[in-house]
Design a protein around this nucleic acid. Structure first.
Length: 682
DNA sequence: TCGTCCGGCGTTTTT
DNA sequence: CGCCGGACGA
């Protein structure tokens, strides 16, 4: 029996309201995950609902994993067995793997990422002749937008999204068509298709939607403010046979509209799901009151939001601080100086985060941290599977799994060099078009197309075919190691790079790849196919991999300062938060000021930043800043200018040491220059 | 096929 | 100010 007595009243109501549509408006730090885990545990343990009937959907693997772990702690793994907790995308893949043949795809489809998409779009634009040249990025994002609105290429021209006068839309139509044809031919689907095809499946075969809806009698969606049109339609499909839908979210933390997230999904919930029960979680367990006061006053300026006021039982005298700095150098020096002081007095660096609007702002801080030899990590950056070596090996696995995948095939055709260059490739592409077969088939059927290339072609085809059977018979990591061996891939890397350090780094990536295959096959045992392995890698974010690799315990942060964007910080908390560059044209960003739209979302971003801090919030802005090489005068962000906000923050001018007494200022200057000399001395 | 030069542009990015 | 992508030349 699970006791809900540890929950506060609204949390408890949320955990106990099981039937019908429920919207849990969970303010920042209000114990959302706790509420959800107790809700599920309560359903299973107290109400006797089978875990097989429960579906929990989140956006990140991390969130899904965390939820699972916490439910395991409450219920134990035996009682939790059969529970489905996954991301939107992995749920989509799971459904498609079973049903995609209904849409005319083979089961062994490949999943294309951004760079694969770009490659096809580039190709499509080459074929499209017009006087104008087109920006492939604009077209790429338009196709993405269309897919996320659930609009197929066949329907595009009949929608309001198509403007007959606009040459860009005509180009987009052409590229979209070409793109879809290619994906079909390669037996590949893209990231957006994972959701789009699932939705198409539900549209075309309502009985399939009903089947899943009957299986999942109780559905929970996390971070509902970030759902887009497709995800909404997917949810509608899954609730065809009942309306036991519980969504959790916070409209004030909706910061992903540029990726298609539609805040109206959460704002209109009770319109879409009549009879919905709305529960507000407003008690915050994270921050001291002055920080929440600031957060409330900043966000209440937004119109068109659900009224919420965060409060906590942690009063404090410490007001949030706003520092005015001379320029970016000064900003980073003062911040890092402050961090060093914290470290010097025995403070833990894992308690500190430096947050910023855009990645470029990290550079100055990073440099300063390095100079002061303060350990740090930067969140974000390149994903594991985007590394060149990993992509190469993944392309091998992809071709072995799905030889129709021409993009992957072309990537590895001459890696390592085997004398099959572009001339040979072109000949085979022509042959393939002529005979209407795929590239792999073309090579296999006529290896002697160019007699001088017969041997390498035959060897290559043989290699792929050999490994098709190896991978069926032997464990994943064993076949993979053999593949790397047979292709002399490591020797190839060694030849590619001049510096030994580079070679070492790349080889480490390869080793990490093998290790992840090993872990994967250990975990999934019999069901560890190479397709599911590649899928897993693509659907996984970089942080998952870090966690997988290091096997560290999550509760204790390492003794390192964390640097990240405001976007990446959502959901996290730190004792001390430095929010840097709270400045017009940064937060809100220049582009949104110019467009006059999206200022609300910038304000929400500011709100997200503020609510990350538990005990100490320090915000900064600069008087001057070098923009594209030119010094420019800067102003404090409008978000901190209102009459309501000013009295509850402490603003200090750090350029004049105005935060110190005269005596202290003298000492500080002395220390500062002493410190500077030491750093330069190194 | 690769290197180099010039012009344009410059956010955020859970999968 | 720098990076990236396209164009063009060796």
């Amino acid at each position: 029996m699970i006791s809900l007595s540890g929950l506060n009243q609204p949390q408890r109501t949320a955990a106990e309201t099981i039937e019908g549509p429920v919207l849990i408006l969970a303010g920042a730090g209000s114990g959302k995950t706790r509420t959800l885990t107790y809700r599920i545990a309560h359903m299973v343990d107290n109400l006797g609902i089978s875990p097989r009937q429960i579906l929990g959907v989140s956006f990140t693997n991390k969130a899904a994993r965390e939820m699972r772990e916490r439910i395991m702690t409450l219920l134990g793994s035996r009682k939790a067995r059969g529970l489905t907790l996954s991301t939107f995308h992995s749920l989509g893949v799971k459904i498609l793997k079973k049903e995609i043949t209904r849409l005319g795809y083979h089961k062994n489809f490949s999943i294309y990422d951004m760079s694969d998409q770009q490659a096809i779009i580039r190709e499509a634009l080459k074929h499209y002749k017009a006087e104008k040249t087109f920006d492939k990025k604009i077209i790429h994002s338009k196709i993405g937008l269309l897919k996320n609105k659930g609009i197929s290429v066949d329907d595009f021209a009949d929608t309001p999204f198509f403007d007959d006068e606009d040459p860009y839309d005509h180009a987009t139509l052409h590229v979209y068509q070409y793109y879809e044809d290619k994906l079909r031919f390669y037996n590949a689907i893209d990231f957006d298709d994972i959701l789009f095809l699932t939705v198409k499946l539900f549209r075309k075969f309502p009985e399939v939607a009903s089947e899943y809806s009957r299986q999942f009698q109780y559905i929970m969606i996390d971070e509902y403010q970030d759902t887009n049109g497709l995800q909404f339609e997917l949810v509608m499909g899954l609730t065809r046979e009942h309306n036991n839908l519980c969504v959790v979210g916070d409209d004030d933390q909706s910061i992903y509209s540029f990726r298609g997230a539609d805040i109206s999904n959460i704002l209109n919930f009770e319109k879409n799901f009549p009879g919905a029960k709305i529960i507000k979680l407003e008690e915050n367990y994270r921050s001291i009151s002055p920080i929440l006061d600031l957060a409330n006053r900043v966000i209440e300026e937004n119109k068109n939001r659900r009224d919420k006021t965060l409060w906590s039982q942690k009063p404090s005298e410490f007001k949030p601080i706003l520092w005015q700095m001379a320029d970016t150098d000064h900003e980073s020096q003062v911040v890092v100086d402050e961090i060093v002081k914290h470290q010097g007095s025995g403070g833990h660096l894992g308690d500190i985060a430096v947050l910023y609007r855009s990645n470029t702002q990290a550079q100055a801080i990073e440099e300063q941290l390095r100079l002061s030899q303060v350990p740090y990590t930067i969140i974000g950056g390149q994903k594991f599977y985007e590394k060149k070596e990993v992509k190469d090996l993944m392309a091998y696995l992809t071709v072995i799994n799905n030889p129709s995948d021409q993009l992957a095939l072309r990537r590895i055709l001459n890696i390592p060099h085997r004398g099959i260059g572009n001339r040979t490739l072109d000949k085979y592409l022509e042959l393939a078009t002529q005979k209407n077969i795929n590239l792999f088939e073309a090579m296999r059927s006529q290896p002697d197309l160019d007699p001088r290339r017969e041997t390498p072609i035959k060897e290559f085809i043989g290699l792929i075919e050999d490994f098709q059977s190896y991978f069926q018979q032997k464990p994943l990591e064993e076949s993979l190691s053999l593949l790397i061996d047979k292709t002399s891939y490591l020797e190839f890397i060694a030849k590619q790079y001049d510096s030994a350090k580079q070679v070492e780094r790349r080889k480490t990536d390869v080793m990490m790849f093998i290790e992840s295959a090993e872990r994967f096959s250990k975990f999934y045992q019999g069901s560890a196919t190479l397709q599911s392995f590649v899928e897993k890698l693509i659907l996984q974010d970089s942080q998952d991999n870090q966690n997988l690799d290091e096997d560290e315990d999550d509760d204790i942060r390492r003794n390192e300062v964390t640097l990240m964007t405001l976007h990446s910080s959502k959901g996290l908390e730190f004792k001390i938060v430095y929010l840097i560059g709270v400045e017009e044209e940064i937060l809100p960003h220049k582009k949104t000021i110019l467009e006059g739209q999206g200022i609300d979302e910038e304000r929400r971003l500011c709100y997200v930043g503020i609510t990350r801090a538990q005990e100490k919030l320090i915000m900064t802005y600069c008087k001057e800043r070098k923009i594209y090489g030119k010094m420019t005068v800067r102003h404090k962000s409008r978000f901190l200018c209102s009459d309501k906000v000013m009295p509850i923050i402490v603003e200090q001018d750090r350029t004049t040491f105005g935060h110190l007494s005269e005596e202290e200022a003298k000492q500080y200057k002395k220390d500062f220059f002493q410190g500077l000399r030491e750093k330069l001395g190194d």
